[in-house]
């Protein structure tokens, strides 16, 4: 266990935000979960008691008849905003006094940094470079993330859970978002920050960064395993696998939706549903491809003269 190495990584000034992000995320997930749970308990109670549902104010916070439903922004909101501004300023001041912004040697194109890392918030995408070619990891994926995020309001047809925390009314959408945000985005950033060392090789936390380490990995392509050698056959085979993944996966999503989320399925148009299918399968494809690479050393699935997937 190399504590010094671990400390060097964790205390690198630009890694501090990620070290801070982890407890922050844990705290806010806890805060959201606590309220979601309370709301779910209330919902269950109201579902079984229609008479109460008609009279109840439907929030977990206390409310009595005669209380004002609205409060003045001044002072009740502005004092919170003022306080928040002061706290943020104090945190920022203390942070800026105690920790200096990083400044390395002057830029030198002839001296490559090893590892050369992108800013921490893009490390998830850089980690994807291990498993995908740059045109997918660097261009297609960011585009899909942006487009996918923008599509969310138009493909989530569930009218429940608007304006309050809940888990039971939105199990699918919340678990999908958590998967995307926590696993595919934050966890990849953590891997890129704390685990990837020189040569972008895998070093467990506490393992010394060995700049001379070489790993002889023989990566194969999926068609090789099936003994396919001709280029045309490889292209066709890969195409079948990728398209087959989307078709079979699409059918699986379809049957699961019909079975477990019949109401949501009914509300969706065909276009909405196929967009959900596409994004869901693409998201799931990332850990699948990672597993292929890390466990079975498979580099490409689909090889064509123009692009490789």
């Amino acid at each position: 266990m190399d504590w010094r190495q671990l400390w060097e990584i964790c205390s690198a000034p630009d890694n501090v935000p990620i070290v801070g992000l982890i407890p922050l995320l844990a705290f806010y997930i806890y805060l959201a979960w606590r309220q979601a749970h309370a709301n779910d308990v209330l919902i269950a109670q109201l579902e079984t008691d229609p008479a109460l549902a008609k009279t109840h104010h439907r929030k977990t916070w206390p409310f009595k008849p005669g209380w004002q439903k609205e409060v003045h922004v001044w002072p009740f909101l502005l004092r919170i905003e003022f306080l928040a501004a002061i706290i943020v300023t104090i945190v920022l001041m203390v942070w800026s006094i105690t920790l200096n912004a990083p400044l390395e040697e002057p830029a030198n194109p002839n001296l490559t940094m090893n590892p050369a890392k992108a800013p921490w918030y893009f490390l998830g995408l850089q980690e994807m470079l291990v498993y995908f070619d740059p045109w997918i990891a660097g261009v297609v994926m960011p585009t899909l993330i942006i487009v996918g995020l923008m599509a969310i309001p138009y493909i989530d047809t569930n009218p429940l859970g608007s304006g309050y925390y809940t888990w039971k009314q939105r199990k699918f959408s919340i678990s999908t978002f958590l998967f995307g945000f926590i696993i595919l985005w934050v966890a990849m950033i953590i891997i890129g920050t704390f685990i990837r060392g020189p040569g972008w090789q895998w070093f467990w936390p506490g393992q010394t960064w060995d700049h001379n380490r070489l790993i002889y990995e023989v990566n194969r392509d999926l068609p090789d395993i099936f003994g396919i050698t001709s280029n045309v056959a490889k292209a066709i085979f890969g195409g079948i696998v990728v398209i087959g993944y989307y078709l079979l996966g699409g059918f699986l999503v379809y049957s699961l939706f019909r079975r477990y989320m019949g109401k949501d399925f009914k509300r969706m148009s065909l276009l909405q549903f196929s967009i959900v299918q596409f994004f869901l399968l693409t998201m799931v494809a990332l850990p699948l491809k990672m597993a292929l690479r890390l466990l079975w050393h498979i580099k490409y699935v689909w090889i064509t003269p123009w692009f490789n997937v």
Partner: peptide
């Protein structure tokens, strides 16, 4: 500096692709 230079080099190299 080196940090910014290589981060931006890595970042914009993706635009090649």
């Amino acid at each position: 500096d080196q940090l910014g230079f290589w981060a931006v080099t890595v970042g914009t190299n993706m635009a090649r692709a």
